[in-house]
Design a protein around this nucleic acid. Structure first.
Lengths: 242, 242
DNA sequence: TGGATTGTCTAACCTAGGTTACCCTGGCGG
DNA sequence: CCGCCAGGGTAACCTAGGTTAGACAATCCA
């Protein structure tokens, strides 16, 4: 039985109009399916990589650890994300990837990726684009972490997740499932769990959003966006000639 | 007279062993030379791009502006950097590029880049690699901005610049020229100019590093690195099979 | 049924770093 | 030669958010 990578194809198609050949090139990859449990480390930073991981379902966290042991989560990935595609080129990450929920992934051997990037330059650029959207998200979060207030930071995270999950049909304007502990939200937004909790309360009392039992209930998406000063341009959603 | 892109070739060679064909492909680009004065905006975030910019000399800053007008500098580029190579793929940045000193650049038309990425898949991966190092630097700075203390943040910046400038022969263990205002250092490290000044004083009084008149004098590189908890792995310096 | 464990929530206290306000210095133009 | 102005430096004060400590609620065994 073959691995179902329709989610990836759909996501790429939404932006770039893949040709029939490009699509079948992606399908020709010898995808290997694997599952992980919550909290399992999927890739250690020091590992040399021979596969890249397409996330089929679940949530993964990519995090860096400072010398004093504190953790900064540098990106959260959702179903449809090609989590460590950059590992195909870099070979070694300098961060760790772990499962924030039970996850199904499809592994693409780098040999296959090398084969198709040798044969399909335009498809190569499509894949390259994916990694650059990640970089764009990183830049936005440098702004968020460097300049925004704590409450705006979580508001921003909730907005970003809403936008990204909507693309793959896992969110609507009212909310979405997000199985994160408050400790994890704190490590995403660069603050202490105590203060994160304070901010969640403020957002809840303000009638913007409620986070409870692994679910984000959005009461006022527009207000939430204003609170975060959220501008989704950095996600580069929508059609893009390549 | 042709534009001198030896700096780029040397920098890429150091990591990836370009073939003769790949090197001449890069030289076949119709490079356009341009100069900018200090503070000139080189690329606005909203511009549609048709060229990417190789920095031949000088320093450039890439920055994002928050809704309240505050600025976060998301990367500083030095001579030899292919500043907005990601613009070749993304077509539109979501940040601004400006000259932090008088700058000479060489512009690569995207048509040429498309031509050589169509013909040289391995060279494509080499260019892709460059953009992924940027992403890796972004991730490190998410950790720095999210988790590190103010003094470590500047210490980290001085360490990173030392490492990056050394590659292109613009720094040694004792220091380097860096023509930034304190306001700019503050916007890089996500702090107020006043507090930045306090931290510079601490580093100076501690005998680690002195910043004065556009010059970084490093007194104790090892101590500085320890203060920053600096680990240059994220710069991916050194040879890399691709 | 009842302890143990894990996560959420809150209060009290404290500090890193922001803000405001001001002085000092050096370079530059008139 | 003098006044102006931009940038560097400091002091005094204030606040966002960190830290510590502990209560509470739900779940999971034994």
């Amino acid at each position: 039985m073959t691995v179902n990578i329709d989610l990836l194809i759909r996501k790429l198609q939404a932006r770039h109009d893949l040709s029939r050949e490009e699509e079948s090139a992606l399908r020709s990859i010898h995808w290997i399916e694997r599952s992980f449990e919550r909290n399992q480390v999927m890739v250690r930073g020091s590992d040399e990589l021979h596969h890249s991981m397409l996330l089929l379902s679940g949530f993964v966290l990519r995090s860096k650890i400072a010398a004093d042991g504190s953790r900064q989560i540098v990106e959260t990935n959702v179903a449809g994300d090609f989590v460590d595609l950059h590992g195909f080129i870099l070979k070694r990450l300098e961060h760790e990837i772990s499962a924030a929920s039970p996850c199904d992934v499809a592994l693409a051997p780098h040999d296959d990726l090398r084969r198709i990037t040798n044969a399909f330059p335009r498809l190569t650029r499509v894949l390259w684009f994916q990694t650059l959207v990640d970089a764009s998200i990183h830049r936005e979060w440098m702004l968020v972490l460097g300049k925004k207030r704590s409450r705006s930071r979580i508001a921003q995270f909730f907005c970003e997740m809403q936008a990204r999950l909507k693309i793959v049909g896992l969110a609507d304007a009212n909310g979405y499932d997000l199985p994160f502990f408050q400790q994890e939200l704190a490590d995403i937004t660069g603050m202490s769990p105590v203060h994160l909790n304070r901010c969640l309360k403020e957002l809840r009392d303000g009638g913007l959003v409620t986070y409870r039992a692994g679910r984000v209930e959005i009461h006022e998406l527009a207000k939430l966006g204003r609170d975060a000063q959220f501008d989704p341009a950095y996600l580069h959603i929508g059609h893009h000639e390549i």
